[in-house]
Design a protein around this nucleic acid. Structure first.
Lengths: 155, 155
DNA sequence: TCTATTGGTCAGTTTGTCTGTCTATAATTG
DNA sequence: CAATTATAGACAGACAAACTGACCAATAGA
């Protein structure tokens, strides 16, 4: 007799299976699948989860790579790697920063903005779908409680 | 004026920042850091998040690689890679499966069991810490609501 | 002006995942 | 029972996504 796996449909709703971090992981993983799967279905199959480090943090007017790195919590080199791919695929363009001769600004192209907007749309749809699974009013409470946990973790 | 980054301490508590999937990600990432950081501090620096695919699913009596693969939702090859590392570091051992001449059983060693127990201890501590950040009774509601979301996603 | 800092690049490594192919054993079935 | 098919795992190779370290060029500060 083996234990229940994470993806077992009949997993028991007790004990460590109810740890918030575990449940968070499962929700996050499902969201990744749904959002990036949806993105692929809408004509953006090149956008992968790692790219969210860029899309989440980029300024519409243009951001510097080191800014993106700091905001995303990854190295400049990793940002450069992600940007390189996105640029080849036409989602971003880079231009010299008029304020600093060392820097380059990374900016979304039209296609990049379309991808970002699809990303947001799919994320919002996911959120509404989740809301439909809870009794009325509970989603708002859930959001507030999760936000409180996040604030607690940052403190 | 740039947007707030994920890790910005003063990020606004409105709009898309309250999406459940995003909050879940932040909690999950914090848990990874805390749990695997703690594990390193307790003498298990070799254990990395990817290894949880094994620790979460392994049967104390021993599991087959293909079992682990199916339960973790990754390929047999990935399991083999993870097991190889864990075996070199003394967390698991493999032995022929008496029931099937093709198979090998993977089993936790004493050290592996110690790591698993530290992993569970740290995870539980994390959960209790989170609980301390919410008003009394709210954590239980949160767990149930998250579990309901997970069940909804599986359906 | 000299020095220290910063933005970015280049080169190389590690980790974790994947496909594809192959062998050996087991299970099914004509 | 022999022949076929399915399964467990190993081997080889690719790639994505991160990392470190070394470096250059431009800026900022002492």
């Amino acid at each position: 007799m083996t234990k229940f796996s994470d993806t077992d449909p009949g997993f028991p709703v007790t004990g460590s299976n109810l740890r918030v971090a575990r449940l968070s992981r499962l929700i996050y993983e499902a969201a990744l699948e749904r959002v990036y799967g949806g993105l692929a279905g809408e004509g953006f199959p090149e956008i992968r989860p790692a790219h969210s480090a860029i899309f989440r943090n980029i300024n519409p007017e243009g951001s510097r790579a080191s800014d993106l790195a700091q905001r995303a919590g990854i190295t400049k080199q990793s940002v450069a790697y992600l940007i390189e791919g996105l640029e080849k695929e036409g989602f971003v363009e880079t231009l010299p920063d008029p304020e600093d001769g060392r820097a380059r600004l990374v900016r979304l192209t039209r296609r990049g903005r379309a991808a970002l907007s699809a990303l947001n749309r799919l994320s919002d749809a996911m959120d509404r779908d989740l809301e439909s699974a809870l009794p009325a009013g509970r989603m708002e409470m859930l959001r507030q409680d999760l936000a409180a946990l996040v604030a607690h973790l940052r403190a």
